[in-house]
Design a protein around this nucleic acid. Structure first.
Lengths: 134, 134
DNA sequence: AATAAAAAAGATAAAAATTGTCTTTTTAGA
DNA sequence: TCTAAAAAGACAATTTTTATCTTTTTTATT
């Protein structure tokens, strides 16, 4: 339960690698993929998602590639994880009020809310700088 | 991400319902299932898992059914969830040391460990009595 | 002892999510 | 114009989830 998927694992590996590179260096997807041992086509999809929300900046065409969208200390692990896995929602009824009509759900509701907050809190305190650092 | 499955949701509903019943009342699976609106055959599998680890006691044959294995205040939500969803493992490398050979994983490792602890902590503090109470 | 009620166990299957791959398109530099 | 690279979209294999159905075992009751 609560397991990060491959996609999430790959996403972290890929963007942390980017964070270890010199800030101005434009990295090829193919290089990142082989460095972190992730299928390049799959990582491409992941970086497209990153790009859409500005976590990375992409350059197309010759000499293109990826750089971080912001400095590593301004990107949290929470953002990275949520970018590819979606929001952290331990239970449907946490986000969907109509979902829990029955009494029992309502008692459980605040517990999952607390779980959600705790997890988000932990992930939010960690930045790519922390993960990339020596 | 981190979403409880239907199985987990059903499991909680079912055992919380049992906790709302008089302690000595032997409840039919079919009654529990219809009360909490869960497919009876699916709930049967869930209760078999509960039974194996003593979370519930089962009686077979005529007049059979289920009762809680312990008093409701001695059963935590963590036990219930882990009984059907397995251990709370946010990342493979948290449990499998060989998994994370690469440097980056090792930096991420303690973060997931912390997530795991936080989640377990929240769920462990909640008992079936809390959830069944008025 | 026979019968009926109930859970246990096992086999199977549909649906959904995950984990990819492949091809075509767009963009930009040389 | 040609080539390098990411973007986008279609497709497919695998795994997990979400069940259902049948048979077996156990137990109480008649």
């Amino acid at each position: 339960m609560m397991e990060l998927t491959r996609k999430g694992e790959y996403a972290i590996r890929g963007i942390v690698y980017l964070a270890t590179q010199p800030e101005d260096k434009v990295c090829l997807l193919s290089d990142i993929a082989s460095a972190v041992e992730v299928p390049a086509t799959f990582l491409a999809k992941i970086f497209q998602q990153f790009s859409k929300i500005g976590l990375v900046k992409s350059y197309r065409g010759t000499g293109g590639g990826f750089v971080l969208g912001r400095s590593a200390d301004k990107i949290t692990l929470l953002e990275v994880v949520e970018a590819v896995e979606g929001a952290i929602i331990p239970n449907r009824c946490v986000v969907n009020p109509g979902e829990c009509s029955r009494d029992i759900s309502c008692k459980v509701h605040p517990v999952w809310k607390r779980v959600q907050e705790q997890v988000r809190d932990v992930l939010e305190r960690v930045t790519l700088e922390d993960l990339a650092g020596v």
